[in-house]
Amino acid sequence: MTSPLSELAELSGQFDTEAAEVSDAAAWDALRIRWLGRKQGIVRQRLAAFKQVPPEERRDYGQAVNALKGKVEGALEEIEARLAAAAAPAEAAALDVTLPGRKPMLGSIHPVSRVAAEVVDIFNGLGYSVAEGPEIEDDYYNFEALNFPPDHPARDTQDTFFLSDGRLLRTHTSPVQIRTMKARRPPIRILCLGKTFRHDNDLRHSPMFHQVEGLAVAEGITFGHLKGTLDAFLKRLFGPETAVRLRPSYFPFTEPSAEVDITCTFCGGDGCQVCSQTGWMEILGAGMVDPRVLAECGIDPGRYSGFAFGMGLDRVAMNRYGIPNIRILFDNDERLLRQVKR
């Protein structure tokens, strides 16, 4: 014969099973009457059975039967509330829906990486692929092959970090162009991007910054193609209203070379402080690949021509997100980084 106490435990399990099946008000009512009914209710009967329990077990029995009663009452209330909410959701005021949602913590992608990814996207669409190379370079790839002769003043514009082993930190991503042209034959259309370094550190210059360079080498590449490519690229990056202007300049590795300006993004070309009232912003450098560079890479400049361009990603990122100086870009302040959402 089972003891009154273990019987109570069984009843508790039985109630759980029955309660789980209640799905409407009628079933709920039936459950309530079966367990809490004034006369025949199971709980009532168990309470009444108190007297039959041996005296030494009465204390435990009393506690157990009261616990069962509490559990049944609680469960019935809960089921009632659940059914009510399901029956009349519009009327229910159970939730303050204006409470804040629980947002998963979103991460963020660095402004420079965002801009880089967008540039890659644009050029992927134009049929370019991405090429990479080392950040520690030697003089040959960083300078000599790019037509910077030793002891030439053009090197003055490239304040260089030298390493104690004689190598250097690349001052531009152009060495990747050299490595690619030496490894592959035209047609070539690549985008090189990554970290670059200059021995410079002030509010406007960071000793490390990011560049993207493009290179196209094939038969019949013209200066007009350079213009068209930059026009398409810059309009997609800065908006369709953007005007693009090329003016002659000098880089040792392109001939002719051009500085490329776009309509000032601050004033739309009307002239403001940022653009020194010119309405233009210098955005990148470009040109036709110097035949000396092609020849150095084993590409016949009589047959092939090409263009190249290079742009600082950091300035574009600063411009896009309104970041006032380049140092802030590398502070890695999460309060800033996490504002960058697209």
């Binding site: 070539i188 196209a216 398409a232």
Partner: peptide, 25 residues
Amino acid sequence: AMRMFGFDMIPADLPAIGSPDLGSS
């Protein structure tokens, strides 16, 4: 010659190279 005529007079155009570059890293 190009800088004397000015880059502005050169029409913008896109190069027509058959297939996309497939050398991506």
